[in-house]
Nucleic acid binder design. Structure first.
Lengths: 232, 232
DNA sequence: TCAAAAGTGTTCAAGATACACCCATGA
DNA sequence: TCATGGGTGTATCTTGAACACTTTTGA
């Protein structure tokens, strides 16, 4: 930064990190992708996936890089959550961390990649103590997920591209931690007209089989342009 | 930072700044407190109030310090909005900025202090071009304000401690950019039972005078504890 | 043939919206 | 006395909530 002016240079600089709260949905449970930290301090303890921001890299780029390195997945739903800047949050030095949360379709994420990085899908019900303020980040991420899920079509990010109504409902029941009436649920979601009903059934869940649906961004756009909102 | 380990030291560090989006409400308008920047680059151009984070200072502390230095006001409603980390957002060097938005009761903020820092209340309708990505920050802050105002009792932060119904309604009409029916508005807000009606009238707005109210945190807590939400 | 999950409509209650007149006061 | 803004109640509509039976099919 030889080009920086004197005024800037009189001020301190900081390490800046990105931490990713990676949510997945599998077997009727919300899960978090975590791993055991591979460097000091706190090596070997459970941690979110994170890393330092590099010199010519934006925050968003750093978050996407970390996620891609880990999962090989691109075009992932990802949003900044909040920055964490307490002076002593990291015992090894002053680090300002920007937390992102990401939603990935757990099924499309191969376990092969998982193990390469020691990544583990951990159910949110039995989440261990994570390093530093990472548990705080997760709590905040969860709150955000719950709120967002009710007003934005982000639930679909957690499901495979083709999914059934019972799957979708189970997802929302998990996120909201409550049971929903299936007739009302179908009515509401179908009334928004953002899904495409396919001609196929998924027979893995029952003998009868359940019709597959796909979320349609164009229809969603129509809904929004028409002045209506997604709510569920 | 002599205590930092080698792994950390191999990574770059960054200037970190805080920028404050300071909203006020006066004369039926939402306003933003801005000033002309006093150092290079872009000296003399309109800017949000901001500053660099200091060595032993958390992000929140930095935001509060900047706001306090500027307004002399303490205990201000303030919330982190989002971080801005594009590589070239600041032409004079790499700076990562954390944007905060604050709501202050414009009336309690004396113009004396204003002028000392060259601060200016600028109506949002005639907001000039601000430096760097500050206009983006303001837009995002506004969207957040609109959403939050409908589900959290933050409108009161923009009014004096004692206010009238017509004032409160005018505030919400401004935030939502729409007109509201005064009977329905009163019904809704009074039904939540979070206000205390005072025995006094404010006669500045009409001959008849309007009763003054005060927002009551205890009543609000009762509402929330009872499982209900603030909505307007 | 039966167990297990998928699929389907109607009724009722609550909350949101629309709407018009009287009141108090100072000039 | 009148102009100005403050204050009040009811009827209707829309939306969310509650609720039970039939269908399909593989074992």
């Amino acid at each position: 930064m030889g080009s920086e002016n004197q005024f800037y240079r009189d001020h301190p600089t900081f390490h800046v990190a990105v931490d990713c709260i990676i949510f997945g949905f599998d077997q009727g449970e919300l899960k978090l992708l975590i791993h055991k930290r591979r460097f000091e301090p706190a090596m070997g303890q459970w941690s979110l996936f994170g890393g330092f921001v590099e010199r010519e890299e934006s925050l968003d780029a750093a978050a996407n890089r970390i996620l891609f390195e880990l999962t090989g997945l691109d075009n992932i739903y990802m949003e900044e959550l909040q920055s964490y800047g307490e002076v002593n949050r990291d015992p090894a030095g002053r680090v300002i961390s920007v937390a992102y949360y990401a939603l990935i379709p757990a099924k499309e994420y191969s376990d092969a990649t998982t193990n390469q990085y020691g990544a583990t899908w951990m159910s949110l019900d039995e989440l261990p103590r994570l390093i530093m303020d990472h548990n705080l980040m997760v709590e905040k991420g969860l709150r955000r997920l719950k709120r967002r899920a009710s007003t934005q079509p982000i639930g679909f990010e957690l499901l495979p591209r083709e999914f059934t109504m019972p799957q979708l409902q189970a997802l929302y029941e998990t996120i909201y931690q409550s049971t929903l009436d299936k007739r009302n649920f179908r009515k509401k979601i179908l009334s928004m007209d953002v899904l495409i009903k396919l001609d196929k059934k998924d027979k893995s869940g029952s003998r009868k089989g359940a019709f597959l649906y796909r979320f349609d961004r164009k229809k969603y756009k129509k809904l929004v342009d028409g002045g209506d909102n997604f709510t569920i």
